[in-house]
Amino acid sequence: MLTIWGRENSNNVKKVLWCAAELRLNFTHINAGGTYGKTDEETFRSLNPNGLVPLLQDNDLALWESNTIVRYLAAKFGQHPFYANDPLVRAQAEKWMDWQISTIVVPFRTVFVGIVRTQPEQRDMGKIEAAITELEQHFTILEQTLAGQPYLSGDVFGIGDIPLGSFIYAWFEMPIKRQPRPHMERWYQRLCARPAYQSTVMTPLT
């Protein structure tokens, strides 16, 4: 039995819910974190000592770290090409999962918290604009890649699209000035056409 812990408005939780929806998995969802609490309770901490969401329970397994959970679900329940059989093809997709964590998360968090969760009069626009500039530099790499392939995973949608795809919804929905990136925008529109993306990622920004 699968259980996913985490509040639905968390970008990291969205990754896991989206992946589970794409795989059409049956699972129990428990809202936790933020205003829902629970993450400081002994039961939750015994499963994830970090006290963070998302958390996946699969029978006796308790697994944390959003990208690791996505990999696990894809490996256990997915099929080719969503989870590629060829290690080379799979690695080309998975590198974008690590790139999202290592390169995108910090400046993205600055922009998201500053724009979505901070009142206008309290925003540090200098810090926000610097983070947007940094993200735009990184997204040049994304644009160049997507000029030659429709998805980050390659010719078809796969796990490499999920981590960044979960964040990119907010990037395009936030009221900020963005550089025109036609290939990145077409990729985003392909994601928006997916029912699983619509139901798990395309929710109000809070």
Rank of each mutant, 00 (worst) to 15 (best):
L23M: 07
V70Q: 00
Q100H: 08
F167E: 04
I69E: 06
K127Q: 15
F77Q: 05
F167C: 04
F167R: 05
R109M: 15
D86T: 00
K95S: 11
D98H: 13
T145C: 14
T35F: 11
N11G: 15
L73C: 01
T39V: 14
Y151I: 00
S199D: 13
N9H: 14
A84F: 04
N12T: 08
E134Q: 14
E129D: 15
F27W: 13
G148M: 07
F172W: 06
P204Y: 06
D58N: 07
G114H: 04
A130R: 13
L205C: 06
W99Y: 13
P81K: 02
N50P: 06
T118C: 09
Q198W: 03
G165I: 02
I128Q: 11
Y151L: 00
V111W: 02
A147W: 00
G165D: 03
E94D: 13
P81E: 04
R109Y: 12
H80C: 10
G33D: 06
N59A: 14
G154H: 00
A20V: 12
Q149E: 03
A147Q: 10
L142R: 07
L17M: 14
T118I: 09
L205P: 05
L56H: 06
T110F: 01
I168R: 03
Q92R: 14
D40W: 06
P107T: 05
W18G: 09
L205R: 09
A130D: 15
Q149K: 07
M202R: 13
L56I: 02
F108K: 06
T43K: 10
I162L: 04
N11C: 12
T3M: 08
G160R: 00
D155W: 00
M97N: 12
F167P: 01
H29P: 10
V89W: 06
R186Y: 04
E94N: 10
I168Q: 07
T43A: 15
L135N: 11
V201K: 04
T68P: 00
P204F: 03
P54D: 01
N50L: 13
A21H: 15
W99F: 10
G51P: 03
W187S: 01
V106P: 11
L164C: 01
P87W: 05
T203Q: 14
I4G: 07
L63G: 02
L63F: 00
L17R: 14
T133L: 15
Q92D: 11
E41L: 12
L152S: 02
E121N: 15
P120R: 09
L146K: 03
E136K: 09
G78A: 07
N50R: 10
Q57N: 08
N11M: 14
V105Q: 14
T133Y: 12
Y72D: 09
P195Q: 08
L142N: 03
G34R: 13
C192I: 00
N31H: 14
F44T: 01
Y72A: 05
W171Y: 03
A130F: 08
Y169D: 12
A20G: 11
E134G: 08
T200N: 14
R186H: 11
I168Y: 09
D155P: 01
R24A: 15
G160K: 02
E129A: 13
T145I: 09
T203W: 03
F167L: 13
W96A: 08
K15C: 11
L56R: 05
R90P: 05
S66M: 01
L61Q: 03
H29S: 10
